[in-house]
Design a protein around this nucleic acid. Sequence first.
DNA 1: CCGATGGGTTCCCTGAGGGAACTCACCGAT
DNA 2: ATCGGTGAGTTCCCTCAGGGAACCCATCGG
Lengths: 184, 184
Amino acid sequence: MTRTPLSGVACSIARASDLFGDAWTALIMRDVLVGLRRFDELAQDLGLSRKVLAARLARLVEEGVLTRERYQDSPPREEYVATEKGREFYPVLLALMAWGDKWHAGPAGPPARIRHNACGHLATPVVACDACREPLTVADTTQLPGPGGRVGPGTQLLGPLIAARGEEVSEPVTAPDTVRSAPS
Amino acid sequence: MTRTPLSGVACSIARASDLFGDAWTALIMRDVLVGLRRFDELAQDLGLSRKVLAARLARLVEEGVLTRERYQDSPPREEYVATEKGREFYPVLLALMAWGDKWHAGPAGPPARIRHNACGHLATPVVACDACREPLTVADTTQLPGPGGRVGPGTQLLGPLIAARGEEVSEPVTAPDTVRSAPS
DNA sequence: CCGATGGGTTCCCTGAGGGAACTCACCGAT
DNA sequence: ATCGGTGAGTTCCCTCAGGGAACCCATCGG
């Protein structure tokens, strides 16, 4: 199927989906972030074919999300470790888990819990506004065009709609300085 | 490939990935949540084959994430609307978008911005602890086994690791009452 | 020398994804 | 009454990515 490449598309969700929009990749990241790092451990825990695991790991390393590191020399052994880019994917997994817990938990309740060590509570992750820390919902947010907007054909994901909104609300709102510049 | 079914696995991330672990589904949800609801609009905006779009939409309806509603009778026309389950997926998309913005934004910056209407700020979504509202990171959280834990073979995703942790910290922490029961 | 790890690679087979054409029901204009 | 257009899919064919399982190679422990 040659999986239409989404990496070129001007939408961060699309770019992220290009990598993680595959059932295994998210699960691999979860495992690695939680402490499973060796090839065989991953293969067994996930139950996916070793071929696909090798391919996914290679891709993740290539994308700078994981690194392959030697942890012993005598019989050479490698392990996969998350980079900062990889570690920062953890919140996305938490958001996904929270959704799954809420909408797909069996009668017994969620299969796993997250403890927030800083405050000691069992946490239900919420996606919040960095400015006011209130939860963000569809109803309470507006999508605006950003600086890296649509470029070229096949790229106008949401183009029309966002452009229309952009005219309605061309004034950049009260505090544009709140916006963080991406450190990348 | 018969895509190993993950729905039976005792892990909410796996269950959610079973649905959204496909490059298109997340993008379809984004479009629907943001206002594109008609078949052709979606097909054109996303640039995916109509066949796959039809399949994905059917799946999403079946899963109760979208509903198919008639918005006009004369020539019968249908549109896809997000249910509450679907609307609650929005935060996951925001988390994904924030990650993409940070790690994959081109030199021009992020392609889109989110305004939080309640506080008026352009928001950078953060995944926070519902109790203290501080951001959650891998380093500052611990995964514990939950009530709906591993059941049956092929299900022990993270089984060993989490079980081991469970012994280290068998005491359920300070405030177990903070835990919300899944409304499902 | 034997067998067991760890970490992959190779082979074959199926079926999901892409592309594009076809269908059907209705409408509005000529 | 026919022509063309639109929304919403369906059908067909073809290729290639995923699953399964076997194979490979280096190194160690006994």
